[in-house]
């Protein structure tokens, strides 16, 4: 079976700061992989490298068995059409109404007519529990939780094969976080997508993951099924999932 996404020895540094120090990672088709790790451990850099927003310094990245590490231009657009992404801050376009945000990839990237795209957008909004009445609102009129839902609707609008979730529950209250987690689980089941999420919220990780990988100092130090997370035998993982200040992980106070 060809992995949906594969990273081999991916390295990335910004100036003297090494962020990714040889990442090896496999995401299989239909699987939900969650990368956990503290702030500044390179979680965002990992997914931005897969998307081609950042170029790794070394290593290879494969999507559906095709090497995409240095693909750019039209080739990159073709690869990106397989992806949807929910950003941490939702990253909605504040100059466009909600429905155009959801339909953006359909109108700009795939040449769907505006009328048809609007109908799809309203259907996708319903899928994340939002009524047609929000379609014409501006993103700034929505609460944080609603913005996340619109972001989710935008991520699934073009029925992508792969969806990335960047800190899907950060900044939400526990109830809204659980609603978003359930939406993620259900939509992924409906769309049948492969997903890669990054989070430091263990509640969220346990709910949406099939498999968990822990990133520490630019390397994957542990990975395994979500059921094994409590008996990983790895003291770094134990410290992280229980949120202890004491342990082998020393927080780097200076960035």
């Amino acid at each position: 079976m060809t992995p949906k996404i594969e990273l081999r020895g991916v390295k990335k540094r910004f100036g003297p700061k090494v962020v990714l120090d040889g990442i090896d990672l496999v995401v299989n088709p239909g699987e939900s992989l969650v990368i956990i790790g503290g702030s500044g451990t390179g979680k965002s850099v990992t997914i931005k490298s897969v998307l081609g927003i950042l170029r790794p310094d070394a290593g290879q990245i494969f999507v559906d068995g095709e090497e995409v590490t240095h693909v750019s231009g039209r080739g990159r657009d073709r690869v990106l059409k397989k992806f949807g992404m929910l950003f941490q801050s939702a990253a909605l376009f504040d100059s466009l109404p909600v429905w155009e945000n959801v339909a953006f990839g359909l109108i700009q990237g795939r040449g769907v007519g505006r009328k048809a795209a609007r109908e799809i957008a309203i259907k996708k909004l319903a899928q994340v529990g939002l009524g047609a009445e929000v379609a014409n609102l501006s993103p700034s009129e929505l609460s944080g939780g609603m913005q996340k839902r619109v972001g989710l609707a935008r991520a699934i609008a073009a029925d992508p094969e792969i969806i990335f979730f960047d800190e899907p529950t950060t900044g939400l209250d526990p109830i809204m976080a659980d609603i978003i987690n359930s939406l993620i689980v259900n939509t992924v089941k409906d769309v049948g997508a492969t997903t890669l999420s990054i989070t430091h919220d263990m509640v969220s990780a346990r709910k949406i993951a099939h498999r968990i990988a822990m990133l520490y100092k630019g390397k994957i130090i542990w990975h395994g099924p979500v059921a094994d997370i409590d008996k990983s035998g790895n003291e770094y993982v134990d410290q992280f999932i229980h949120g202890r200040a004491e342990g082998p992980i020393k927080m780097e106070v200076k960035a």
Binding site: K48, L51, G52, I53, D77, L80, K81, F83, G84, M85, F87, Q88, S89, A91, L92, F93, D94, F104, G105, Q108, G109, R110, R154, F164
Partner: peptide, 20 residues
Amino acid sequence: MRVTEQIDALTTLATNPIKY
């Protein structure tokens, strides 16, 4: 748009930010 990740979002929607 850059600091709120809207430019990255354009990229993930297969829209080149320079072009758009």
